[in-house]
Each structure stands twice: as structure tokens, then as C-alpha cells.
């Protein structure tokens, strides 16, 4: 019996190691979305900024746009934030933000501190957009083409490598389509 007690720390550790091991084999970015290739689901959100125009799915028509779901409480969002600032500063691709499950004031303060890369931000404290679009968690990024179809979805933060090697080429390709 006493021997078993001394095995307790080891067995706890083995359980934890299995969890972490499982976590590493899963790339959260690879969750397939049923929405790829389909028209963007309907939604209508008020703007985060009081007095400004809100967002709905018609706003994405006519230009290739990026839609980024973020929140001030979300640490990975902060990690990917510099890339949005760079895209905003160096390209003409419009980035729409969805302030997801967050307090208005917290989001505004966060943007004030870190910079605002978004052309417009929808305010979604109650996960209305999230349910329509099937948001797993923040951050999440979608690319919608000129005809308003979802062409790409990524769950989790976007880093410069991924942007350079996959997303930017894809945006260029979609842009060139008639």
C-alpha cells in the first residue's frame, strides 16, 4: 500500500505528459470548415465604435477581404496583432475585425494601446457572429473573395511565416480571379 503512494507522483506525471503530447500533435489551424467555398453566412453587427457604421455580409462583396475574430482577453490575438498592423500599413487589403465575447471598453482600450489595423469592427459580445460562422475560439481568420464566398479559414494566431508562405499568395491568387 505504501509503495502505491510513492507511485502517485509518477502516474500523475504520465497522465499530464500524455495530454501535452496529444496537444502537440494537433495543429489547431487545421480544423476543416464546412463553410469553405460557400457564401458568407448572414449576420448584422453594430460597430464597436459608437456612432459608426456596423458590418454585415454584404460589406465583403467587390473586394477580397480578411475577417479577423479577436478579443482583448485573448493572448494569442496579441501575438498575431503585429502582423495585422503590418498588413494594414503596407497593403490595401481591408481587414474587418469582430470584437468577440468582450466588453466594449476593454476592446477599445486594447486597440488604443496596440493600434487599430481594422477598417471596421463589428461588436459581438453575445457570440451572434460566432454561431453563424462557426467560430471555435479567438483568434480566427477568414478570407472572403469578391463574390462574397469564404475561401480560407484559420483557427489560432497567424505568424509572419504562415502569412508569407500561404495566406498572402492565396490572397494574391484570389485577387487575380475574374
Amino acid at each position: 500500500m505504501r509503495q502505491l503512494l510513492f507511485l502517485l507522483p509518477l502516474s500523475t506525471f504520465i497522465l499530464l505528459a500524455a495530454y501535452f503530447g496529444l496537444g502537440l500533435t494537433k495543429d489547431p489551424g487545421l480544423i476543416p470548415s464546412a463553410l469553405i467555398g460557400k457564401p458568407a453566412p448572414k449576420f448584422d453587427l453594430p460597430s464597436l465604435m459608437p456612432g459608426e457604421k456596423g458590418i454585415n455580409e454584404h460589406d465583403f462583396k467587390g473586394r477580397v477581404s480578411i475577417i479577423n475574430v479577436f478579443a482583448s482577453w485573448c493572448v494569442p490575438c496579441l501575438a498575431e496583432h503585429p502582423i495585422w498592423m503590418q498588413i494594414h500599413n503596407n497593403t490595401s487589403i481591408p481587414i474587418y475585425g469582430i470584437a468577440w465575447k468582450d466588453k466594449r471598453e476593454s476592446t477599445m482600450r486594447w486597440l488604443e494601446k496596440h493600434g487599430n489595423p481594422y477598417v471596421r469592427i463589428g461588436y459581438d459580445p453575445l457570440n451572434v457572429f460566432g454561431i453563424e460562422w462557426g467560430v471555435y475560439g479567438a483568434p480566427e481568420t477568414y478570407i472572403v473573395d469578391k463574390t462574397g464566398r469564404i475561401r480560407f479559414k484559420h483557427v489560432g494566431p497567424i505568424f509572419p511565416g504562415l502569412w508569407q508562405s500561404q495566406i498572402f499568395p492565396l490572397v494574391e491568387k484570389i485577387r487575380a480571379e475574374k
Binding site: K26, W73, C74, Y136, G137, G156
Partner: peptide, 18 residues
Amino acid sequence: TIYPLVLEVFNGSKISVG
């Protein structure tokens, strides 16, 4: 600290207990 990570392994949701 790890509960959010464990949860992520199970159903892919990223949460923060805060």
C-alpha cells in the same frame, strides 16, 4: 494554467480562466 490547454486538446476551444 493548463486547464485551458487540456480543453484545447479535447475540443479545440481556446479559453482563458483568468
